[in-house]
Amino acid sequence: MSRLREVVGVETRTILVVVLGLLFVEVAVRLAGERLSGDVVHIEKIGEIAGDLAQAEGFRILFVGNSLIGDGLDSERLESILAESLRIPVRVAKIRPDGTSPLEWYYLIDRHVFDPGARPDVLVIAFGPGHLFDRSGNQAVLRLAAHHVAWDQVGEVFAEDLEGFDAGAQFVLARVSRAYALRDRVQPRVLDQVIPGYQDLAPLILRDRPTGAEVDAGQEQRGTRLLERILGRAQREGVPVLFVAMPSGPGWVVDPGVERLIREHSLGLLDLNEELPLPPERFPDGQHLDDVGRRIFTDSLASSIAPLLSRMPE
């Protein structure tokens, strides 16, 4: 042991300064974390959003999705159209952390909606191309660890969703360190300052690259295990689920296997991508709707969803 101390001792001060520097960064990120991203602010408020909705009077609709529904849905407009149509008060809330998919949705719904008993009258899952397939890249692991998984869910994450030693190690590191967990938010913000247009252009070169999990699997994953878990959990809680395919431009159709699963185990599918063909100018970044697109989508969704909701049992 003394020999080990003698060998490592030559760099004790160096290592100590590096560790102290990292601790300083950790504290700074924890203090400034919310300023790093509006998405983090939203994530911090998910429990509050679900709780407020559960306390609200009238018919309660909870949308879960990612930035597609975040940018695409005007909640207040939908509330007022539905209230007029159904002749009862309607409350709409959105849980829409950026870049998420069924893996994060499963845990955040469980943690913030079902576990505390904050059940809505209907849960609407809004999705875009490929969003309902199982995905578990590095980014998802970091976000699960930092934001979406409660302590009592950690066992389930390790048992069901973390494949391989590295995913587990990343989860533990992200659980311990905010600086590590928020790397995917720090990196684009910093690089955007030094490389003009980085945030807009980087997704174009990242889009075609497989995630770590896909590389491990040797192919793109097309499973729906996580979606089935969400549906099973909602069924046990007695919460009806409705799916909305978001307008995402031409060239995308809902996978027939996913559609079959949805129709068998939920209220149904509103395929607004097919029913509402929007021109490319409504998608300024190629994915998300602009203001006009948002209004068109909200109106269309209201007219599609109202008959379904009116047929729901009290």
Partner: peptide
């Protein structure tokens, strides 16, 4: 170096 490893490693390895 360590900060770069934490924050600027490529999104996909």
């Amino acid at each position: 170096l360590v900060l770069a490893l934490v924050w600027f490693s490529a999104p996909t390895a």
